[in-house]
Amino acid sequence: MADRLAMSPTATLAVGVRAPTADIYAPQWRNVIFVAPFLFFFTTLLLFPLLWGMWLSFHKADTFSSGNFVGLGNYARLYHDKVFLQSIWNTFYFVLLTVPTLALIGLFLALCLNRRTRTAAVLRTLFFSSSVLSVTIVTLIWRIVFIPNVGLLSTIYGWFGATAPAFISDPSLAMVGIAIATIWWCIGLPMMLFLSALQQIPQDIYEAAALDNANRWQTLRSITLPSIKRTFILVIIIQIVLQFQLFGQAWLMTRGGPNNLTKPIVLYIYDTAFRRWDLGLGAAASEILFILILVAAMAQYLVTRSRGDQA
């Protein structure tokens, strides 16, 4: 455009006339006023705590004193702490149990409920409604479901003369129990994200596919799924970030037991920093969690992006 303008004599004239006009996109300092409120809260509530946490992680600190610089001492202690290593493994295991399941069930529900019927609208509300509950209510509900002998699960198994699996006390099942409660609690958001993505797909692409003889499976595989790929990545990243921060469910359902098998990193941080008041160690564990989330989310993003998506 600029080249072409420069070529023609009349255009040069036009540029000459326009020159005195101020460039409305030029930076102006008073524009800072508009971002100042955000910057204030961003700095005080996010940036400052983040940097302070990093600073703390290199110090031996408790509630009464903070100051002794210990370098990577806190990180070294974590490296040798079996409970911490166990909590990392627990967290990964939990993320592995929940994130793919949430994405797949969310997608499945969205595909089923993406229609304009009344039933679909009611079911959408129903599936989303669990998301508005607090973690206390959610865990209470699932504790009642899982209670041995009198719980809902035991009752149902009882009808068939079977014994229900002990989701809270069995070491190999406790994390699965927490995962089930979490999936039930969190399924609303992925479903809604997928629904909105599905509704963005232009209808005429489906009409073209119908004229192209695509059956339901071909349409799903070749039209629908590629069209919502970005949302799929978004859901995975959001859920990774959320589920890495597991705390409430584990704390309220199992207290991290049996034998620390359901103790996630955040619970370890809570124990260390606010029950044993070893703030430096807690801060160091927080930094590791921060890096883990960052790496997991970035890896997901980079892997999917490098496959080339120029839709």
């Binding site: 232009p202 692409i205 009409e207 070749s222 039209i223 790929k229 998506d309 839709a311």
Partner: peptide, 10 residues
């Protein structure tokens, strides 16, 4: 189609 309705990812 008026909007061409090409499959964007293909």
């Amino acid at each position: 189609f008026q909007s061409y309705a090409l499959y964007p990812h293909m």
